[in-house]
């Protein structure tokens, strides 16, 4: 691959796409699989009023939760904030606008965005009140409501291995939303443990095809302490 076509960049170069008000989508579940070096880079960049979309609010000092505890987030679309009391506090005080979705619905909205489908049909029995005011559809005697797909300006994801084209393999429970975010963001930045030449990963084992990945950065790693 020509060097001027290389997707491998520094954290600072990759994060040129992130500025005040950016809609940022992140992979990770309870902080596991949220790219630590990119989160640190965004913190250092001191951008404000971000809109975040991701599974949960992480922990105050882990994952995307760090952006919330540092007051950089204005809106959050998520399924769960129970592990981040700071997110709950900011929501109660009206500083953080939180929109909750059922976890599988949120994941599927992101996937729809990633595969170019305009929306999904959600079971009318799911989540009392969530479908109020939304367009309804009847199929075989059951009621569904339409949830629009979600895309974002920038997606930040974590993987174990990337090749130089951006083909990705994930790491155990750190896969979660990462392959979906990779597809749904306009610009996708993958933070990885290891970068290998294109051709080194068996094509049968690739989870995310590199066409979805715009930038690759090498991870500085994260220490996770078990309670």
């Amino acid at each position: 691959m020509n060097s001027h076509l290389s997707k491998i960049v520094t954290v600072e170069q990759a994060l040129e796409a992130v500025s005040d008000g950016t809609h940022l989508m992140y992979g990770g579940f309870g902080g596991i699989g949220t790219p630590p070096s990119l989160i640190e880079g965004i913190l250092q960049k001191r951008v404000q009023e971000l809109t975040l979309t991701g599974n949960d609010a992480g922990y105050p000092d882990l994952g995307a939760g760090r952006l919330i505890s540092h007051g950089r987030v204005k809106r959050l679309q998520t399924s769960h904030i129970g592990s981040n009391p700071e997110a709950g506090r900011q929501m109660m005080e009206g500083r953080l606008d939180v929109r909750f979705y059922s976890q599988g619905v949120l994941a599927e909205k992101i996937r729809a965005g990633g595969v170019g489908i305009a929306g999904i049909l959600v079971d009318g029995d799911l989540g009392e009140g969530h479908g109020v005011g939304k367009q309804q559809v009847n199929i075989a005697g059951r009621t569904y409501w339409i949830e629009p797909a979600i895309t974002a300006d920038v997606g930040i994801i974590y993987a174990r291995v990337a090749d130089t084209f951006g083909n990705l393999i994930y790491d155990k429970g750190a896969r979660n939303l990462n392959p979906l975010v990779a597809m749904a963001a306009d610009i996708t930045i993958a933070e990885v443990e290891e970068i290998v030449p294109a051709g080194d990963i068996d094509p049968e084992r690739i989870v995310t095809p590199g066409i979805y990945v715009d930038y690759i950065v090498k991870s500085d790693g994260v220490k996770r302490e078990w309670d």
């Binding site: 579940f29 596991i32 976890q103 994941a107 979660n176 979906l180 996770r224 078990w226």
Partner: peptide
């Protein structure tokens, strides 16, 4: 013997049994 990326949904460290598999969140809910 904990693995940093192997946990239950509640965040407790976990192990795998033979035959275990990993998948993304849409398949988990699918």
């Amino acid at each position: 013997h904990e693995h940093p990326y192997l946990s239950s949904a509640g965040g407790s460290p976990a192990t795998l049994v033979p035959g275990a598999s990993f998948f993304d969140s849409t398949i988990a809910y699918g």
